[in-house]
């Protein structure tokens, strides 16, 4: 098995669910035919390269009380992008903040995902983001229905 194969196996295993047991990396080791030490070494390597952000939990945010969510898109001038992007990123209720390339006819180029515990809190946060940034042209796009939500398959 080459180093590349080893890394592939570990990624494949870790993109799934890890059991909550005393030695979870030992379980990964058994499933991949590696030793626990090798698994941990691969994970450290992936983390150093920035490919692995962490081994952690992804929550169902509606179930933990954050059930008022919206994608808010903002019209920001190109030279003002970093100021606004960083300001919005600093808000704890903003989980994602991106500057996106957009087609003609779609003027909103900063995309934020905002999560709150009530509709009232959501409105308040959006209002605050608008006031602080000075960006008055924005659109609140709420989800009506989840059609699909899965994880990326890397390997």
């Amino acid at each position: 098995m080459t180093r590349h194969d080893i890394i592939d196996r570990v990624i494949k295993e870790l993109q799934g669910d890890l059991p909550a047991v005393y030695r979870p990396y030992q379980v990964v080791a058994e499933r991949t035919g590696l030793s626990e030490e090798e698994v941990i070494s691969v994970l450290n390597g992936l983390r150093e390269k920035g490919m692995l952000k962490r081994i952690g939990a992804v929550l169902r945010h509606q179930k933990v009380g954050y059930d008022a969510n919206a994608m808010v898109v903002w019209k920001v001038a190109e030279e003002d992008m970093d100021r606004v992007g960083n300001l919005m990123a600093a808000c704890p209720l903003v989980s994602h903040c991106y500057w996106r390339e957009t087609p003609a006819g779609w003027p909103f180029n900063i995309f934020t995902m905002v999560h709150a515990r009530s509709h009232q809190e959501l409105q308040a946060v959006i209002h605050e983001l608008s006031c602080k940034s000075g960006i008055g042209e924005y659109r609140v796009i709420e989800s009506v229905r989840e059609l699909k939500k899965t994880s990326v398959q890397y390997r």
Partner: peptide
Amino acid sequence: IRRLGGVF
């Protein structure tokens, strides 16, 4: 918990 695992 939706998933406990690698976040890449």
